[in-house]
Design a protein around this nucleic acid. Structure first.
Lengths: 231, 231
DNA sequence: GGTAAAAGTTCAACGGTTGTAATCTTACGA
DNA sequence: TCGTAAGATTACAACCGTTGAACTTTTACC
């Protein structure tokens, strides 16, 4: 294992073929997101996206598994960021503290567009708001979002287990996983509701921070038996 | 408000038209569930269901909003049972205790088929297992299940607020809602995994009870500030 | 430069979903 | 009892997401 350093980033030369492929994928996703935000998820057809991106419909399915995947095309990034926030935290920082910092300072979660403070920019605010509105209006997207939330929470279970030196099947680790997942979900919901109501950026941040504090304080109480130095 | 007693059950005479309608709905749902369990969700077509139930495809959509709704056709019952478990609990019983009893003694949750002990019956065990397997194999059903879980948890928020004499928007109530929701989700997941592994009924029950105890003990610690007599 | 593999295209088909208009069934008052 | 309005069901057609197969173009590499 440790024999191969395996750097997280792969600076592979990256041939023309792969570069083109990624550019195509990015173009499709960008065009799709713009159209979805402008007119709503169900109102945009795959044929329109294909036209606007100058590819065939089949090519879209070559890059994405479904129309919903086209909307939530950044989940992997978000997941990776959650994981690294925990695993790469500074020494002496607890898991909960690292996560709280990510949630209050840096990350606009699932379906992330701009980093936190970017909501001060009215244009980006509206963009982000449109993105949230499109989700709320489409049952298919709400369902997919719920699934993504569950899977994201679950993906962190081995991370917690590793950091706390426990078995991933430990009931305490299972409970921790879903309860942190619940906190993420509530933060997401709070952020979404605040932005949909067009509250000013300061107020949005205040509400999100408040709900995160509320949840994490209670999580600390709920899991007081875990390693105090790390959790 | 209080002028009309409004009993929960409506013993309305229930004309022939309404009776027929319900019978049709039930027939469709039963046929569909049977086919889904037998052959898997994606492998069964709406045309087949319509044929087997001797109705037209359009009639199915007259009764159900989508193919997924046809699978999860009992959610309303389950939700009602959660609510009444809390609101109709005996005096002196806390919310958490009432919920725990429901989860450990009585209810097979979302997509309920038989009540708890029925898993001892091999035939019903397999039926229930097939139902869970169909869910796990279909991305569409997994997504829908996740959404149903979120909505079920959220539906209980005003109930908690009412029982505890708090505002539904109280951050503590919000946090409580999602964390109990997490417990429900974990119980569901535990039950499903145990049944999919074909563990004996006793073992299934033991695991479910254990995970419920784990979660509820921690919930009690997390919300120690709530009214001790009622929560 | 030539060739094999990858990426993209075209075409056809299937299945879920919806709207419209027609048909049949129940409810209910003249 | 009949006739009619409302409700439930059906047949039909269309739209869209999704997939498979065969074909064309582009890139990688000898």
């Amino acid at each position: 294992m440790a024999a191969t350093p395996e750097p997280a980033q792969e600076p592979e030369p990256l041939g023309l073929r792969e570069r083109k492929r990624r550019r195509t994928r990015l173009e499709i996703a960008d065009v799709a997101t713009r159209l979805f935000v402008e007119r709503g998820f169900e109102q945009v057809t795959l044929a329109e996206i294909a036209d606007a991106a100058e590819v065939s419909v089949k090519t879209i399915f070559n890059h994405f598994g479904s129309k919903e995947d086209l909307f939530f095309d950044r989940v992997d990034e978000v997941r990776a960021r959650f994981e690294s926030a925990v695993t790469d935290r500074a020494p002496g920082v607890t898991i909960l503290a690292a996560m709280r910092e990510l949630l209050t300072e840096h990350l606009v979660p699932i379906g992330d567009l701009p980093p936190w403070r970017a909501l001060s920019n009215p244009e980006r605010y509206e963009l982000f708001r449109g993105f949230q509105e499109a989700q709320d209006r489409s049952p298919a997207l709400r369902a997919r979002r719920a699934l993504i939330g569950d899977e994201t929470a679950e993906a962190l279970r081995p991370v917690y287990a590793g950091e706390l030196g426990r078995d991933p099947d430990d009931p305490a680790i299972r409970a921790l996983t879903v309860m942190i997942g619940a906190a993420l979900e509530l933060r997401d919901k709070t952020l979404r509701a605040a932005v949909l109501a067009r509250l000013p950026a300061r107020e949005v941040e205040a509400r999100v921070v408040a709900v995160v504090e509320e949840c994490f304080g209670r999580l600390l109480a709920a899991f007081a038996d875990l390693d105090r130095g790390r959790f």
